[in-house]
C-alpha cells in the first residue's frame, strides 16, 4: 500500500480541530490529497502554507473564530466547507480580494466523488443524497441521536477547554450562536450565498 504523503497526513491532523471529525474519519473520505490541492489552488500555495503554520500553533486544542485573523478565519471556514460538502464556497469579498482577486468568487463542487464524501451527512447519521443508499425501508427507522459535543471532543482527542459535565448549558449556548439558512430566493443561488434565517415578523414590524 502506498503510504500517505507527509503533507496530506499533516493537513488531515490539522483539520481535526476545525471539522470536529477524527483523523480516521477524514482519511476515510479519501479526499485529503484532493482537498489539500484544491485549497492550495484557491488560496495560493505559499499563503496556504502560512495558514497551516498559524494553525499548527493551536494544534490539539479547539479553535474559535477569534483565534484567527480575518483572512485565516475565512480560509479555515472554506476548508471546513470543503470537508463538509465537497464544494469550495464563495468567500467573503475582502478575503477573496486579498487572496485571488483575478479569479471568480463562486461556489463549485470539486468532483462527483467529493460530493458523495461530504461530512455534513454524517452529522445527523444520514447518507449523501443520491449515493450510498441505506436500503429498502430504512427511512422508516427512528434516527439515532447525534453524539454530544463532549463525546465528539473526546473522540477527536481534543483538549477540553470548557468544564466537563455541563453539556446542556454548553449546547444551549451553541444553539444560541448558530445561524440557520433563510429562504432560497432563486434556485441558482449557491448554498454558500443563501442569506441567514431571520426572526419571524412581529406585529408592528415595518414592511
Amino acid at each position: 500500500m502506498a503510504s500517505i504523503p507527509a503533507d496530506v497526513q499533516k493537513f488531515i491532523e490539522q483539520c481535526v480541530a476545525l471539522t470536529g471529525f477524527c483523523e480516521f474519519d477524514l482519511h476515510a473520505t479519501g479526499m485529503g490529497q484532493t482537498y489539500l490541492e484544491t485549497a492550495r489552488d484557491q488560496v495560493g500555495s505559499a499563503r496556504f502554507e502560512e495558514f497551516l503554520k498559524t494553525l499548527a500553533q493551536r494544534e490539539g486544542t479547539l479553535v474559535k473564530p477569534k483565534d484567527l485573523d480575518s483572512t485565516d478565519r475565512e480560509i479555515a471556514r472554506a476548508v471546513v466547507y470543503l470537508w463538509y460538502t465537497g464544494a469550495w464556497p464563495r468567500l467573503a469579498e475582502t478575503a477573496h480580494t486579498e487572496l485571488r482577486p483575478n479569479e471568480t468568487n463562486t461556489e463549485f463542487v470539486v468532483s462527483a466523488g467529493s460530493y458523495v464524501e461530504g461530512l455534513v451527512w454524517h452529522t445527523f447519521n444520514g447518507h449523501p443524497v443520491g449515493a450510498r443508499p441505506p436500503g429498502f425501508g430504512t427511512w422508516s427507522v427512528r434516527p439515532a441521536e447525534p453524539p454530544s459535543i463532549c463525546q465528539i471532543t473526546k473522540e477527536c482527542g481534543l483538549s477540553q477547554k470548557h468544564e466537563e459535565g455541563h453539556s446542556d448549558g454548553v449546547e444551549a449556548a451553541v444553539l444560541a450562536r448558530l445561524r440557520h439558512p433563510g429562504p432560497l430566493t432563486a434556485r441558482h443561488v449557491p448554498p454558500s450565498v443563501v442569506p441567514a434565517a431571520r426572526a419571524p415578523r412581529q406585529e408592528g414590524d415595518p414592511r
Binding site: 473564530p65 475582502t94 455534513v120 465528539i152
Partner: peptide, 30 residues
C-alpha cells in the same frame, strides 16, 4: 449545504467583510 455555510459564517457579511461569529470543530458538528 446552506446550513454548513451559515453555521460556519463563511461568505462574509453584507459589507463584504469576514464575519466574526461562527462555529468550528465539535460545536459545529454537533
Amino acid at each position: 449545504m446552506s446550513n454548513v455555510a451559515q453555521a460556519l459564517g463563511v461568505g462574509g457579511g453584507k459589507n463584504g467583510r469576514v464575519k466574526d461569529e461562527g462555529l468550528f470543530g465539535p460545536e459545529l458538528r454537533w
